[in-house]
């Protein structure tokens, strides 16, 4: 157990940064070499409260701040042998660990962005298809395959899809050009995309 190990903080307001860096370097090396809990307690006592202040400012949340402190200081304990005083000061090493852990935490915390709205993916269908579950077709489709499937569409649907997706015309322009009602353009587009989608799904 940890009887006899106390949190020490005597460096806080007395030592100059450079002296402190040397002191901390020496302590980290003792931790690395001997698993010295006393030395670690000194390092912990110096850095943990500072990391908490830093983390609180960055994350604005006590629980997250303490999680960052815990993960960072755990790394310091378990990987003290990776500290190299020639490459930088102990504070820079520990700060860099904290920063990297912060990015990992951000990644985990990041709310799963809303599933991409089907309106973005199926612009012409936004009025007709409220279905949000347009996902997971076979991933192995290639452009060539889409081209082949496209050729299997009925001529009338193909003409509409070609005008909209390849020529970049609006639905209204297509309606004018083909002298058919706008509603017909929309329904042909919808049917064609649905058909392509069905063909893609059957395409394994």
């Amino acid at each position: 157990m940890l009887v006899g190990i106390s949190l020490e903080n005597k460096f806080t307001n007395t030592s100059k940064p450079k002296d402190c860096a040397e002191e901390m370097s020496a302590l980290l090396m003792e931790v690395a070499a001997e698993r010295c809990k006393r030395s670690y307690a000194k390092v912990f006592g110096y850095f943990a409260p500072r990391l908490r202040s830093y983390a609180l400012k960055q994350m604005g949340n006590e629980a997250l701040a303490m999680e960052l402190v815990q993960d960072t200081m755990t790394n310091v304990w378990q990987k003290a042998h990776l500290f190299n005083a020639e490459k930088g000061s102990p504070s820079t090493w520990i700060f860099t660990i904290a920063r990297n852990i912060r990015f990992d935490m951000l990644r985990k915390l990041q709310n799963r962005k809303e599933d991409i709205c089907s309106d973005d993916l199926w612009p012409v269908l936004c009025e007709q298809t409220p279905d949000q579950n347009e996902v997971s077709l076979d991933q192995q489709v290639t452009l060539q395959q889409v081209g082949q499937l496209f050729n299997n569409l009925p001529d009338k649907q193909k003409a509409v899809i070609e005008a909209i997706y390849i020529d970049g015309k609006s639905q209204q322009e297509v309606a004018d050009q083909l002298a058919i009602p706008l509603g017909t353009v929309k329904s042909r587009t919808r049917l064609a995309l649905q058909r392509l989608k069905d063909m893609l799904e059957d395409h394994d």
Partner: peptide
């Protein structure tokens, strides 16, 4: 990192 060191930390 030196900014962090300059934080006036409370006695733990």
């Amino acid at each position: 990192a030196s900014n962090i060191e300059n934080i006036k930390a409370h006695t733990v």
